[in-house]
Every structure is written in structure tokens, then in C-alpha cells.
Design a protein around this nucleic acid. Structure first.
Lengths: 124, 124
DNA sequence: GCAATAACGAACAAAATTGTGAGCCTCTAT
DNA sequence: ATAGAGGCTCACAATTTTGTTCGTTATTGC
């Protein structure tokens, strides 16, 4: 649980006020989170499909991360109608969908410099 | 210190292998980190200038975050020549510079949905 | 000669995140 | 009737991140 008055929490709030950048990063920076968003965008929109994609995740952790993403309105949970053993799917909201291309550019950025692109400094 | 064999560390490695997206996010997700990158890109490239921009940060934490950013080759530390009480500046590498526009789009994404843009679901 | 500025480092403590163990419900196939 | 899939929740423990305390080096200004 968060301690409202810890220095850590105060600093977090401070950063949120400095720029939305910091709250944006806070929303996507948990373990598994951005990968979950990306997987859902690829069609793995059911609990068990996500489990298959992320074999090391425990169900408890997956449930928790999905709940947090839902709290940030990045996705919504929805019962699939007409299915008898119920069945729940996760759908990205417009907010979540807008995030996907940004995640893709982050991914490309990571790939570019992992694959040996030289690091240099333009000194002036 | 990191425990190489903890489940946490193993899961982190697993995600790094799934997609560079996850390592990219790991590099920028520490407290203060992306704000530091952004501040440097705005010209606050000295230790004391960053302290002024981020009044709540302690010097020790600032030093640590700068070191981590340096370890990820996002910035480099450099002595400013010809200055007598030495003087050190932090310069973004090409990797760091390429990151800035992505941070800006994350910032805009955050702003868009903070300012009351409606959340909706396109249900097919 | 004493305080202040600039730029940190090590060791430790507080707080937060992530993972684990156990359990619950509904339905279906055997 | 029993096991298995699908879909979770809660409380607690392990690990990691973040912040604190104290100390250092070197130089300038008073």
C-alpha cells in the first residue's frame, strides 16, 4: 500500500505536476505492463491467451496488472455475451490504442541501439 | 544489489528477450530518469542546474540516476575544458537524443487524456 | 581560516513492487 | 464424482527501488 506522506510518494506527485510525461511513464512502467498492452493489441485479449504469451507470469500477478491497467483506463474488461462458461475479454480503450504506436517506437529505439548502432556524441 | 537468480530477475530477463520494448522501458522508468533526460535536452546539462530544476531530489539520488543513464549510454559525462574549478557537463548521446521525441509523444499522450478527452471503446 | 559551491560515494534504512501459497466459483467433459 | 479450464482474490514474503546520513575533494570569496 502507498504511504501518502512518504518522501517517495511526495516526489512522485511532484513529478506528476512537472510534466505529464512522468505520469505517463508511471502508467506503463510496471513489470509485464507494456507487454500486456502490446499482446492485447495483437489479439491476445483473453486471460488464458495472455498466460500463454507470458508463461512465467503467475495468474495472481497477471490479474493485478490487468486491474491496474483498467484503473488507468488503458483497457476495459468485458463479458463476452452468449458464451456459456462466461468468458471475459480485455479491450483497449482509445487511450490504450493511442499508446500502441508509442510503444512501437520505443521498441524500435531499443532495437536500433541493441543491434550495434554506434553511440556517439555530437559535441556542439 | 540484484540477485541474479531471483524470480524477479529471471522474469525481467525473459521480458527483455521477448521484445526490446521491455528493456527500453526499463531504461527510462526509474524515478526522475526521464525528467532528467528531458531537462538535459532543454539545456540543463550541469549537476547544479538539474538540482535547481528538481528541487526535491537529493544529490546522492541525482548522482545515482545520472550514473545509470550513463551506463545505458543515454548520456555521457564530460569535463568542461578550460574551467578552473573543473566543471562537468552531461551530454545526451545520439541514443539519448533519439529518445527525446518519444518522450514528447508520451507526454502529449498523457496530456490528451488528462485534459478530459473521453475514454471510449470501439467495440468492433 | 572558514564558509560556500560544485560534484559526488558508501552504507544503511524506508518504502514500494513483485512473487507465492492457498483458496474460491462456474461450467464441461469423462 | 471428479478433474480440468477459465478467471480470479487475499494475505504474506522476497526483492528491488528510493531516500538518508555522513563524508570527500577541490576551489573561490571574504
Amino acid at each position: 500500500m502507498r504511504k501518502e506522506n512518504s518522501t517517495n510518494a511526495i516526489n512522485e506527485q511532484f513529478l506528476f505536476q512537472v510534466c505529464e510525461l512522468n505520469s505517463a511513464i508511471a502508467m506503463i512502467s510496471g513489470r509485464w505492463k507494456s507487454q500486456i498492452v502490446y499482446s492485447i493489441s495483437q489479439g491476445n485479449n483473453r486471460f488464458h491467451l495472455l498466460k500463454k504469451e507470458l508463461p512465467n507470469i503467475s495468474e495472481q500477478v497477471l490479474g493485478r496488472q490487468l486491474k491496474e491497467l483498467e484503473a488507468h483506463a488503458i483497457l476495459v474488461k468485458r463479458e463476452i455475451p452468449e458464451t456459456v462458461p462466461f468468458g471475459i475479454e480485455y479491450i483497449l480503450t482509445n487511450k490504450g490504442l493511442d499508446l500502441v504506436p508509442i510503444l512501437e517506437s520505443l521498441c524500435n529505439w531499443g532495437k536500433t541501439y541493441e543491434k550495434g548502432k554506434e553511440i556517439s556524441v555530437c559535441s556542439m
